[in-house]
Structures are given as C-alpha cells and as structure tokens.
Write a protein that binds this DNA or RNA. Structure first.
Length: 513
RNA sequence: CGGGGUGUAGCUCAGCCUGGUAGAGCGCUAGCUUUGGGAGCUAGAAGCCGGAGGUUCGAAUCCUCUCGCCCCGACCA
C-alpha cells in the first residue's frame, strides 16, 4: 500500500495535515515563531480565493480601502469588552529606533514612543475612528467598506494556516442607520460566505449563530459558518458580527437623521482568513496529498512530458505546447483554463507525484505513443486510484479539449458531493440527553488521533449567564464546544440536553479547531 | 506561564551511559545503465555536534548556566 505521503489520515491526522502542507509545497515555517512563509502554490490558492471573494464582496455593494497596520493604544481602551478579548495576544511597538551599543545592535532606550502602537489584531477601532469622521448624515449611510490585510494575534500555539501569529484575511466593516439594516447586512455577508465555501471551496458548511460565550468581544451577536474536517472536528470558516451601537458609542460614530435628530450608527464586521486553506486541506485531502477544487487550483491541468534526453523529445514538447494552447483557449465558470507544461528536468514519474501531492485536478502525461495517436492520457486527482492502482484515463485530443470545461466542473461537483455526503452523514440527531452525548464522545483524552465522531445536533433551552457557563463546562470536560445554532430552524424541539427544560432551538455540538 | 520532551549534514535520526576529535538513510551533484512510469550502480559535495563557561593532555560525549523548538494544559479566525 504505497501512498504519496509518509503518513495517512488514519495513522495520525495532525501529522498528515503537516505532511500535506509541506509535501504539497504550500507553506513552511519561518525564522519567526508562529509565522509562515506561504510558497507559490499556497499563495496561488490564496490569490484565487481573494479574487473570487473580492468580486462577491463588491457585488454586494462594498468598496475596498486600506487602514494602517498600527493602532494607537488608547483606541483599544474605548470598548471595554473588545480590549479584554484581545489584550492577551497583542504585539506592541514601543520604540522607533535601533542603536549600536558596545557593538551590539539593540533597541535604543532613548527612542521610546510616547504612546505605544499595537499591531492590529483586527481593525474595528481604527476603522471606527475613521468612520466617525466619514459619517455625518443619514445620507452617508450605509457605509460599506472592506479591506484585505494582515493581522497579528500572539497565539500560544500555532498551526500552519489554521492558527498563525500573523495571518491574512479580509475584514468588512459597515455602518448603518438602524439595527434592522445592520442585521440584514450581517446575515447577507454570512450567506456570501456560505455560498463561497460551498461553490468555490467545495466545502459544505452550516451557517448559524454563535452562543453567547463564543461571541466576538464587543459584539451583540456573532454568526459563523462551520465546516467539518475529515477527523470530525469543526472548523469555524468565517464569521459575521452584528456590533449594535457598542463601537459607535465608544467611538462616537453618529449621524443626523432626516428629522434632525442625532443617532448612533449600528455597525457590523465580518471576515474570512487564510484559515480557509487549512479547511480545504482537511476537507478534500487524501493519503496522496492535497486535492484542489478546480475553482481554486492555480493550475487546473498539468501536462507532464515524458522526456528522455533524445531527439524525439522535441516532438513530445511540441505536442504538449499545442495541447496547452488549445486548452487555455477554453473558458468556463472558472475562467480560462489554467494549464502548465512542466518542463523541469526531473524524471516524469517524480513530476507526476509532485503534482498529485499538490492536488492539481488533472494531470496529463504525454509520451511518444500519445503524440503518434493524437491521444491524451490523464489522471483525475479526485478519482486517482482504484484500490491501490492509479487510474489512467484515455481520450482523443479533440474530445479532451472539447470536454475540459465540463470535466473541471464535474471534478468540482464530485469533490463537493463527497464532502457533503460525509458532512451530512456525521451529524447525529438521535442523542437527546447529555448522558447520551457523553457516552457517544467518550472520556476526554489528550490524544488527537481520536476516532471520527462528527457532530451532534441537539435541542437546548438557550440558557444565558451562569446556566450557560455550567453547560459549557460540562461540554468542556468532553472537549466539546457549541459550534452554532443553525439558521432557519423550525420546531418542534425536544427537551434541552443540559436541563431537560423545553427546548427552543437546535445547536451543533462537536470538537473544534 | 505550569508539566513533559528535544537540539548532531538540506531532512529524519544514530553516536553520549563507558571522553580519543563525526556516522547512516533520504535528499543534492556528476557519470554510466534503465525508459509507458514514484528505477539501478558508482563516485562526490555537505556538519566549528544550539550557545557560553567549566572539568580534562583531550569534550558531540561529563558538570553549570543559557537560548531555541516540539507535545500537553490555560487562550483563540
């Protein structure tokens, strides 16, 4: 049983994940603790994610801006809950100069800033400060802004793509005249994320509201899209917050209404990050490496010429180039087909497996026999093997070119279908008491290689305050968390799994990243 | 910040107990063979053994201090 990775998902899921990141050439650790170098293949995926999502953000009326990396310390002090939420994980700039002292380069003690600057963990405060100047009248509303940026959160434990000290994201920030509009915006962007995850990343998610204890610091309500990884754990793939007037009051974002009253704006914020790439890996990856949905594959078709350092090579290369030209002229839902002829002076078998690990949706191998017959011999990354044997598909060149757009769409759909079946098949709805849940998930262990459990969908009475804390503590003893309360629920609901009282809605419970 | 582990070639690690001045596999480079599939053989390049101090004729190895990284816990997109 030979696979392209040194470790299988079954053997050790966390190690498998790291092996994919490394062997698919996506990213590597850097000299800076917790920060990663995103390599061309990983970056190419991110660029495609950005391009598609950026279009969706603009289509819903938003404009891009850029705000500073540094935030004056006193900005954060304004919203109490917000500070408390982030205080423990901030990078702080206190000096502006270095100096060589006794031949050692060090921070110049005389160059201390009057007020420290924090490196943004998120930009609510500095954007709020700007909005306060931009918003004067109801005619300025709604204000719909987005930015693509890096942010820093000084995390104790990091994991490539899933949780890094510095990460990349987009953060949308909007200001509205009233609660209704702001809530509509919050849910609109949540729906944009849901569609994006499913249609582009081929990653099924459930959109819902986070329980009180999982809210964004300073938010009135927080919503998320939650994806299920292949080890059964949940990944929060995107969030959208209704901030009420909390930030507006803290930062004086006010406007004059049509009848000359002064009112506070209702604001929202929403974001997705490079974490999505981690979600793609753990949704679609297999024991041969990454499998990329064509929509975000930097190269959808890779042509590997079988070169032998002989004169015949020229004919093979010509054929490859001709095929490439015909393929890139095809265009479908994902734009013009992205094709690479891999001419690197490596053995063709090595190149093939490199592209298998990277997850290129279609890998074509061209030898003299294909050239002579006008054929295309290719592998589909979504259906690579039959048992241990690699499946080799054959087609005439003309038929292959004519069918490439449909084939890519089929691969996109098949990856989604596979993930969706696993997702739907692993949400238990028949566990109606906490004891059932405890028995199902078993005792808490430190071993991350626990068997696949998926999630539980159960009714609860939506307690708040201390009652919620007690429920959360009980779940915590099983390493479980409440992921969200799915939107669009209809009753009736059974008894609350925590208290036995009448349930008011369903929540999703599972282990999480 | 608590508990555990670990730093030796690009990577994974052996050597350390019982001090004598550095090894393997993979990768890399070159040559030859092989050629519808993750090949074989031969030769070669590559490490002041995390850092500082000490013991010693002599330290990767023993002692002291220090730094980094990994795993587990508290925190999180």
């Amino acid at each position: 049983m030979t696979r392209a990775l040194p470790v299988t998902r079954e053997e050790n899921f966390p190690e498998w994940y790291l092996a994919v990141v490394r062997d698919a050439d996506m990213a590597e650790t850097s000299a800076v603790r917790g920060c990663m170098v995103i390599k061309p293949w990983g970056w190419g995926i991110w660029e495609l994610i950005q391009a598609d999502l950026d279009r969706r953000i603009k289509e819903t009326g938003h404009e891009n801006c850029y705000f500073p990396l540094f935030i004056p310390l006193h900005f954060l002090a304004k919203e109490a809950e917000h500070v408390e939420g982030f205080a423990k994980e901030m990078a702080v700039v206190t000096h502006h100069r270095l100096k060589s002292i006794d031949g050692v380069l060090q921070v110049d003690p005389e160059a201390e800033l009057e007020e420290p600057l924090v490196v943004r963990p998120t930009s609510e405060t500095i954007i709020g400060d700007t909005f306060q100047r931009w918003v004067q009248s109801y005619r300025d509303l709604p204000l719909l802004i987005n930015q693509w940026a890096n942010v820093v959160r000084w995390e104790m434990r990091t994991r490539m793509f899933l949780r890094t000290t510095e990460f990349l994201w987009q953060e949308g920030h909007t200001a509205h005249a009233d609660a209704g509009e702001a809530m509509e915006e919050t849910l609109r962007m949540l729906e944009v994320y849901r569609q994006f995850c499913e249609d582009v990343l081929a990653m099924p998610v459930i959109a819902g509201e986070k329980p009180e204890n999982e809210r964004f610091p300073g938010a009135v309500s927080t919503y998320s899209v939650e994806a299920m990884m292949q080890d059964g754990k949940a990944l929060q793939a995107g969030t959208s917050h209704y901030l009420g007037t909390h930030f507006a009051e803290a930062q004086n974002i006010r406007y004059q209404t049509a009848d000359s009253q002064v009112a506070f704006c209702h604001t929202t914020s929403w974001g997705v990050s490079t974490r999505l790439i981690g979600g793609v890996i753990m949704t679609h990856g297999d024991d041969d490496g990454l499998r990329l949905p064509p929509a975000i594959a930097p190269r959808q078709v890779v042509i590997v010429p079988m070169l032998r350092d002989k004169p015949e090579d020229a004919v093979v290369l010509d054929y490859c180039e001709g095929l490439r030209a015909e393929l890139v002229a095809q265009s479908g839902a994902f734009g013009p087909v992205r094709v690479l002829v891999d001419k690197k002076p490596l053995k063709s078998a090595d190149k093939r497996w490199n592209w298998v690990r990277r997850g290129a949706p279609i890998i074509i191998e061209v030898g003299p026999r294909d050239v002579a017959g006008g054929n295309v011999t290719y592998m589909r990354r979504d259906r690579l093997r039959d048992g241990d044997k690699v499946i080799s598909n054959n087609s005439s060149r003309t038929a292959f070119v004519a069918g490439i757009v449909a084939l890519l769409a089929e691969i996109q759909a098949s990856l989604f279908g596979e993930a969706k079946a696993r997702f739907d098949g692993n949400i238990r709805t028949d566990l109606t008491s906490f004891d059932d849940i405890a028995a199902y998930f078993g005792p808490s262990t430190d071993d991350e290689t626990d068997s696949f459990k998926g999630w539980v969908r159960a009714a609860w009475c939506k307690p708040g305050g201390e009652a919620l804390e007690r429920a959360v503590e009980r779940l915590k003893s099983l390493k479980l968390t409440i992921r969200n309360a799915p939107l669009g629920q209809t009753g009736p609901f059974g008894a609350c799994v925590f208290t036995g009282a009448a349930g008011v809605e369903h929540i999703l419970i599972g282990r999480a990243y």
